[in-house]
Design a protein around this nucleic acid. Sequence first.
DNA 1: ATAAGTAGTGAATCATTATTCATTCTTTGT
DNA 2: ACAAAGAATGAATAATGATTCACTACTTAT
Lengths: 210, 210
Amino acid sequence: MAYRETEKMRNRKAEARRRIIECTYGCVAGGGFRSAQITRIAACAGVATGTIYRHFESKEHLFAEVFRIATQREVDKVAEALATEGNVVTRLETALRQFADRALRGPVMAWSLIAEPVDPKVEEERLKFRRAYAQLFEQAIREGIEEDSVPDQDARQSSTCLVGAIAESLVGPLSPAQAGATEPAETNDHDPLVDSIICFCMQGLTGTRR
Amino acid sequence: MAYRETEKMRNRKAEARRRIIECTYGCVAGGGFRSAQITRIAACAGVATGTIYRHFESKEHLFAEVFRIATQREVDKVAEALATEGNVVTRLETALRQFADRALRGPVMAWSLIAEPVDPKVEEERLKFRRAYAQLFEQAIREGIEEDSVPDQDARQSSTCLVGAIAESLVGPLSPAQAGATEPAETNDHDPLVDSIICFCMQGLTGTRR
DNA sequence: ATAAGTAGTGAATCATTATTCATTCTTTGT
DNA sequence: ACAAAGAATGAATAATGATTCACTACTTAT
């Protein structure tokens, strides 16, 4: 026999795959999924278009994976905010703020994840993504109900509403039409927009204005 | 000279245009914008594909117009619910219920208007559509604040959150993946899903659980 | 060095639809 | 009836990009 896949080769392939994903991510963060054509991704990753198909079954599969990765990054941040010590209500508020702040910090990617028109396969991922957020919130709300810091309610429904309220509030400002209108260089974490979103959400949850 | 456009001709043209719009509407209500190809629309309207371009500059223009019309129908219903006599809070609740009930009644159209991936031109209309709803709610909220039945708040922001919360709550049930899961033949107006959405929304607005 | 197997290449192909436009058909005024 | 103008037609074209695949280049084991 002759050639047998070796560790070195496996690494090299993994590296190419990684680079393709990274470049796709970059394209999306720069101009949305729309701007991420195979040709451009290939050029950016320094491979031929055909090579991409050795690593991914189709463009949609590649997109779905990139979407998942981007999503995971965001969801993890929110999960982190929810996992701290302390009062459920405060943690929820921090988590909501994290969500909104991060979106405004990386508006193109956020828009792609939340609202850009995408192919059905990717849209499926989007539904999962939103469910993932909702589930985090849902869990926290349940805890809150348990410990009586949040009034009894349909936790699942409320969490869905939270996600919707934030997403909707962000769609306008994130829209490509508004590109540049919001300064992404904002180092300050206190956007009044975010404050009023959170105000509504917390009241929806707790019935208490703050 | 000879031919000069006459009333009869004007009517005939208007009728063709109307039919094209109606057929497009039908296609969308049946299978979303995705399923509304020019060929199919033309066949359904009993005209040649080229004829469509005598009435509309492009497919996107046609879609945008159909979107506007479909939208207007929905928005009007909500506006109607808001225009009745009586307490602002009650009217808002009725309006929210109207929104959700109608969506569940015509799930494919609702999904197309709220969440189906569409071309940029149509997406623009969608943003307007959501703003239109929000503005109706915003106005009502202002009235409520005025008459002290609703606590003081950022009416614009709250209204956006309302739209988001409802839309998000509906996206799951309306998704084509869920097609048929919800019986559209529901003659009864009391879907528990709708109740819990509204419960969250009203509390977000008024701080009062009901 | 050689052979066998695998990865990479990218121009060519395919697929999908919207759109065009040369031609035909209708309407209208004389 | 005829000519002028417009409307309708729909097969052909265009445009966009994803995907393929015959070929080349590289890796490995002997």
